[in-house]
Design a protein around this nucleic acid. Structure first.
Lengths: 205, 205
DNA sequence: GTCTATATCCTGATAGAC
DNA sequence: GTCTATCAGGATATAGAC
């Protein structure tokens, strides 16, 4: 915490991490081994010091989880807020835009979003995160419904089902996307939009 | 094990469960609370007897997980085998068919497949399951590549990316689909095929 | 087939020395 | 700010009575 950059502090001495760095490494571990499958001992080992020293940086394991889930939820909430601004275009345009923005958030905050999407509701922190997530999902469904009512997208499929499948495809990114890979967020977002809105089948056009 | 139907055995006496029933309830709990978040004590409580009595039915917690993952992997492997039979039609036809069959398996074996899709590689059992799953994913990508080479689906998107997104959409079913709901596997499979192959955008047609 | 009791280990978290 | 030592509780799994 005396070290905003998360780097080594003094010439000699132990590593020294700030809160943000500890959080980042914790989320990494939670995703690799699962939250319950990761012990504070594991995290200590990862950071290179003893188990008890962690509690100098962070109040509890639960607090680490809460911070991570908030990071993801706050970012996704911003995307929803943008999509609710009707002056930004038709529902169809805003739906395409929210797909793109969601991909951007998933890519930029992949570890935190991954953690969020795996939450099961095992504690009060997780239940609260699930509540916020359900609110987001409901707003996405609203947008799909509005686009269907505009006549912009097909109305022969239940909007709730379309919403689940469309954002199911978006969310599946977290299973394989790695920012250090060669695929940019733009390429992925374009591919999702192309598949979802234009379809895979080749057309004469 | 003396009770193939998983029902009460004698008039008087304790419930009495067979292996299959214990496994089914275990998978249910693993999905609700996570595998690591579920203790054998939780499972005992769910089944209505003491913690230690479970070990009369099942050798270990790990064994329960292995059985569940095998159930899912065996079913998905059958789907892949079917799709590899080139006499069954063009790659495009087989791709559409494998999407439908995957949905059927996800719906019929939803709890086991859910567990499989959440495995992180935390133990030897999980690592072996991940190996088998990666093999399946690779065969699905082969099929998408073949369909693109046939000229049946668009070739302006990387086949590996298409495969990940397409089956990401299929797999996202496990997050919300409940067999007791009003949506049949057929409706869901049709919706996925329509979105993925024809697209959401309304066309003059 | 289920129970109580127990063995052994690991968990999140704290106390206090340096 | 990190350490060793420790706590109380819970984990998987086993032993042996009934």
């Amino acid at each position: 915490m005396s070290n905003p950059a998360g780097q080594r502090r003094r010439g000699p001495g132990r590593p020294g991490y700030d809160q943000a760095t500890v959080l980042r490494r914790a989320i990494e571990l939670f995703n690799r081994k699962g939250y319950e499958g990761t012990s504070m001992g594991d995290l200590a080992e990862e950071l290179g010091f003893s188990k008890s020293a962690i509690y100098h940086h962070v109040p509890s394991k639960t607090h680490l989880l809460a911070q991570a889930l908030d990071e993801a939820l706050d970012e996704l909430t911003v995307v929803i807020r943008e999509a609710q601004d009707e002056s930004a275009g038709s529902a169809y345009e805003r739906l395409r835009s929210v797909v793109r923005r969601s991909v951007e958030v998933l890519v930029a905050h992949q570890p935190a979003v991954t953690l969020l999407l795996r939450v099961r509701g095992n504690s009060e922190v997780e239940l609260e995160a699930l509540r916020r997530r359900r609110w987001i999902d409901a707003r996405l469904a609203d947008l799909v419904r509005a686009a269907a009512q505009e006549g912009a997208i097909r109305d022969d499929l239940p909007p709730d089902l379309v919403s689940r499948l469309l954002f199911g495809m978006v969310n599946s990114l977290i299973e394989w996307y790695r920012p250090e890979g060669e695929m940019s967020a733009t390429v992925v977002a374009d591919a999702i939009a192309t598949i979802a809105f234009d379809g895979l089948t080749k057309r004469p056009s």
